[in-house]
Design a protein around this nucleic acid. Sequence first.
DNA 1: CGCGGGTGCGCG
DNA 2: AAAGCGCGCACCCGCG
Length: 622
Amino acid sequence: MKNRLVVDVECASLAATVDADIPLHCVGLRSSSFYHSLPGKEGVEELQKLIDSDEYRLVFHNASFDVAVLRTQGVTIPKGCYDDTMLMAYCLKPMFSQFNSLSVWGQRFGKPKVDYLKELIGAGLLPSDASKSEAFKLGFNPVMELYNLRDLDITWLLYDWCLHQFTLDSRVSGAYYDIELPYVEVVMAMEANGMFVDTEQLRALGDELRERLIPLDLELERVGGLVPSSIKWVNNSPVVVPKAYKNGEYKRLGETVYDHCGLVPFNPQQSTHISWVLLAKGWKPTEYTKGGCPVTSANILEPLEKEHPIIAVLSERSKLNKLIGTFIKPVLIKAKDQDGYINTSYNQCTTKTTRLSSSNPNLQNIPTRTPDGKRIRRCFTAPTGYSLVIGDLSSIEVRILAVLLDLVGDSRVADAIRAGDDIHAINQAAWGMDSRSPTKNGFFALVYGAWLNRFALTIDKPVPVAKKFFNIIREDYKVLFETLMPKVWKWARKKRGYYVYTESGRKSRYGFVYGLLGHRYHYENITSLDAGLLSAAKRECFNAVIQGTGAGLFKLLTLRGLGTSRVDIFPCAVVHDELICLIKDEDAIEGAAHLTKVFSEYVLSGVPIAATFNIVDNWSLK
DNA sequence: CGCGGGTGCGCG
DNA sequence: AAAGCGCGCACCCGCG
């Protein structure tokens, strides 16, 4: 049994993983026999000595940050020599992000985090109007030492708590040690590697899309004209609210003074403006939001395109603007000064279902379904000398559902998968539906709790027609709706022999269900007396088992694939069930075949898992 | 002017 | 009686 060494670094920026030049202020170290906070260089040398002695198990809170920072500072940290209390707490309690926060744990343990900025001001080291970022630019100082040591204390206590919880639950500790903890290295590798973008091509695409915006805007300006600057909806009808300024007058565009409500050019990005303009053309809203505004989303307006030609223009404009503003502009900004690589952040501890999330920019929602979207993906490619290798788990949610159905005595789906048959095609024939895609989508809508109206929308049929299929499917998969789902809810309500924390921060003996790989998914409202909250919890909880098991399995197989490869595979990005890698050209065939083999030889409780990794020119191809 | 909420929409 | 789930981000608004 190794000694415990809690480590916490302080540095000037949270973006340190990308920029190696960020100064490291200090390294805090706490073991059972020593306890100090050392300035940068000294701390780094001391830490390296302790790691090299091989006597310590390192403990970080949010290792993917600290380990990445320390490695950029030249510290050698072997894989597998550390724990991460943030990840441990997350595995025990994936539902509540606040339980990943050291400050919340500090309060719980009676050791509140030091308010660094406040204490600096109190000590006279900063003026009273200083900002948080200024505080962290300050070098090592006595207040930082206090702050750093307190974080070590909290992490120490949190580690105790998590280790104890793990002794009570071997399934969740398995998910941590076998999947989440080793996966930190994959996250760090992806964040460091980044995705390669052909910036010239992307910039040209952006310019082209912007050109297409011009005639649309001219047309909208012509048709929309001027609209009141401030519109509110009261009882589902628009009310123009004059906007009073300090001098009691009303302004337009900050210059011209009016004595009535200001008029502004129609802004097609404002839903209130859209509804105002459409209303003037005789549109009758059918749905209203909670705030009382007419809903102007695409699915509502699209059917009315013939009646109101402006809708087509609006829709086209909004799609183009979305592509430019969300997917082209931010990516180009990120790719600047980095030789075409864009580095995104992955968060391993935010989602309720143990998926990853991606941000700044979010690489998990780059378009793929529309022609213009595909052109954006085409810009994501491989640099000279490397091949882009991409693969994803094949219909993973069906396979997991098959395992669950098999558990409660309906092996039809599992048998179909084992026989290599297409379950959606089988269902389509059995239910008499006219094509595969709506069959599949409609089935999954029902699996995740959709009711008739939503189901009808999903399969794109009028409600009376949809009703027939709705009843057929509910009857055909009676076991799913009447045995499996209630069983999962019952598991989620099971009383435990120990306490877990609830969303409201209280302790409870109830309230989580396991994924097939040991992760916990916690739904406090699964015991609610409020019908609405209860049914929402039921839907979320059943969804979490499937989505979460898929996420865990994907992580596990990624670890195996990368860990057992003879050739170097550089992971660049993941999109839930899709892995994107760069491999040296000469190794690419072997690497892709290896990943395919590892992913496809896995069998989940009797149901085979499959994935195919291919060498592709760009991300629009799979 | 920064922040949070609402709306809408991209992906799985 | 009535209900798909999970994310992040752009844009707008109101708030203080």
